[in-house]
Nucleic acid binder design. Structure first.
Lengths: 190, 190
DNA sequence: AGCTGACCTGTTACTATCGACATGTGAGGT
DNA sequence: ACCTCACATGTCGATAGTAACAGGTCAGCT
């Protein structure tokens, strides 16, 4: 007899966590996922609606209110919040970093130096812009434009990670371009 | 009539790319994925064997040699290498960063300050160790212990990204811990 | 009253991913 | 000869994730 997944499934916990903050409908959650979590944990609405049903069946969330157009807002139950806490404190952190730009870099040797330089320029620009955007957001949060709730403070911490990672990647892309230029310009010197 | 995926599927390209470097069996590839790509693009052997069959059917790879125990080594075909090049130069880069530690950070407000501090210590230690390990690897590569082939140089670039990201995350975890301490120690001062 | 478009919730079918299981071979020890 | 373990390939079933399809409702306009 096989039960559900033995390994923690993060989407469930993310949904309960968002609902622990404030009640929301599947539609709301779908949008919040795109806005807030889109870049770290994408989820489309089919997946969200499906998961909400399961979570409700398991008693981890419950219907908070029903609105117009069949809108159903859910809220997290005590059991749900407990489950998120358990996930946060008692489960192994999965450190796998899935990032396509890094996968691509393994195969840079298949491209021409010109293509590579152009690619790295585009990447650096992308990381730079995203870091800048996140810095703005962090600044707004620090000025208190989103209040000072613990939820906002947590999100501020997440944003900080985004800033630092994207800055690191920007620097990396610039460094990689230099390396390529060196290899191209000076054939071998060893 | 629906054809295969319109969107690039990275696993295929990673496999062809590895085979363009040197011929390898499904078993070899499975291990190389775990060693080299495990932290940026995990893939189990069932997925790899399945994909190899499809790639062979499509003529992007072909059997290079057959060894004992039914071992089949594949090599990339011209068409396969061309497909990897197309992927590298002509497809959109997918910038989604899937990283569970970041997802968790959104819900830090659900934990106690003590648990959070302990968690961040563990995370910082993890990132620190991984960065150190990657720095060692980079040092060995820079000393020429893996030769100077373009393939090795590309991998060196990938490792550099790993170093920088993990250093950034280590700094982030330390910073986050400080933030938590501040919030805990000094209630509000604004 | 009728039209239109944004809102809101789903289903269907497909691909992607993964754990568990199944099968067999070759090398080296005893 | 026999055992054992690493090598090597694969299937099967379940879950995760996504694009495309489908359908109903309320607000605002005419």
């Amino acid at each position: 007899m096989r039960a559900g997944p033995q390994v923690p499934v993060s989407l469930r916990h993310a949904l309960i966590g968002l609902l622990a903050d404030q009640p929301a409908s599947g539609y709301d959650l779908s949008r919040r996922f795109q806005e807030v979590l889109g870049s770290v944990w994408p989820a489309g609405h089919p997946q969200i609606y499906g998961e909400l049903r399961k979570l409700a069946d398991e008693g981890l969330i419950e219907v908070d209110s029903e609105g117009p157009r069949g809108r159903k807002a859910y809220r997290a139950t005590e059991a749900g919040v407990a489950e998120v806490r358990r996930w946060l404190t008692a489960t192994e952190v999965e450190h796998t970093l899935r990032l396509e730009p890094l996968l691509r870099s393994v195969f840079f040797w298949l491209t021409t130096p010109e293509e590579l330089a152009a690619h790295l320029d585009r990447e650096a620009a992308y990381f730079h812009q995203l870091a800048a955007k996140l810095r703005d957001l962090a600044g707004a949060k620090d000025r208190g434009e989103y209040g000072h709730s613990p939820q906002t403070q947590s999100l501020r911490v997440t944003v900080e990670a985004g800033i630092r990672i994207n800055e690191a990647l920007e620097g990396w892309a610039a460094w990689a371009k230099e390396q390529g230029a060196k290899t191209k310009a000076g054939p071998e010197s060893g």
